[in-house]
Design a protein around this nucleic acid. Structure first.
Lengths: 170, 170
DNA sequence: GATGTAATGTTATACTATAACATTTTGTAG
DNA sequence: CTACAAAATGTTATAGTATAACATTACATC
């Protein structure tokens, strides 16, 4: 029998192939629970889209998802976008504005705004949730008399692994 | 003779119709200077696009610009996008990822990442440059072993004026 | 004025997203 | 159980955003 998974499912910089199938199924289980609690329906399509998003475990475009869905029958764009809208509303996925792409939410239990570190080299992504950043933004907004309702924070750069490689090569 | 303009050109929440023509021409003059210093060419098309961006003085889409350019002859999308790319490279405009739109840069003299407050009600926008936000992001990234090269910070909410109106009405 | 580079023109197409309306599925009240 | 309303999905068409690829023109320098 396997050891229970102790590491969080949330860090793509860390998620190894060996634990990956489990991080997908964990995300789906969590989603089932959350939807039940919220009295909303995680229909087969919605569940399948969430599964595909987690399987990639990195930013994935709507038409990429569409293509995969079409391997099991005819599907049109609105079907995908509706599922993505639903999943976003339930906080199960985030949209990455700078990539026109979507990614599974690391902490769907507690609603939050995503903050993202996106590696330009390997295209992997990590979600962080640093209250200092949120607070700094809120504070700065207030100073301008502005009421912040929704924050987008997306940071492009190099993850630890790729930075090392670049240094070795360059 | 007019009083000299003491207020910065950068705050769209503040820019009144009376000073607006001047804030456009100031932005163009600054651009001329910057391009000269950088030994790059602010060609008529590039200059015109920058002018249109500043005339709107709020987030404006590429195809909106295209439409205006077409009033003086046939123009195709690549022309606009090339001009926008150039202006972005020179730090004269910013791209707003969450709106697929562009806006004149408030402080083109010193290169920086934009941080934006976007009013959901009146669609106006203010650019801020709060080092505390940048630093919080950098610090948080470093903690994750991530080298931040480029930050996107876009905050949706209500500007002071619109918030008051909402309260009065609601 | 020949030559190479930068900028622009031109055509076509890729990619992202939604409107509008038809149909099916689901939950609920009678 | 069945009739009804609401929710979800199907279907077709189209809007909106962006770039690839190649041709032509303008510019700078020798």
């Amino acid at each position: 029998m396997r050891e229970p998974i102790t590491e969080p499912i949330q860090d793509p910089f860390e998620c190894t192939p060996s634990v990956h199938p489990q991080c997908v199924s964990m995300a789906l289980e969590q989603a089932e629970m959350i939807c039940q609690r919220q009295h909303v329906r995680l229909t087969p399509i919605r569940r399948r889209v969430l599964e595909l998003v987690w399987q990639k475990h990195r930013p994935v475009g709507a038409y990429d998802l569409l293509e995969q869905l079409q391997q099991q029958g005819r599907v049109a764009p609105p079907t995908v976008y509706r599922a993505l809208d639903f999943l976003q509303q339930q906080g199960l996925i985030h949209r990455l504005e700078s990539l026109n792409a979507f990614v599974g939410c690391a902490q769907p239990q507690q609603p939050h705004q995503g903050q993202f570190l996106i590696c330009l080299s390997c295209r992997s992504l990590a979600e962080i949730a640093d209250p200092k950043i949120s607070r700094a933004i809120h504070h700065s907004a207030l100073t301008a008399g502005f009421t912040a309702l929704n924050q987008t924070v997306e940071v492009m750069g190099l993850c630890a692994g790729c930075r090392q490689k670049e240094q070795t090569n360059g």
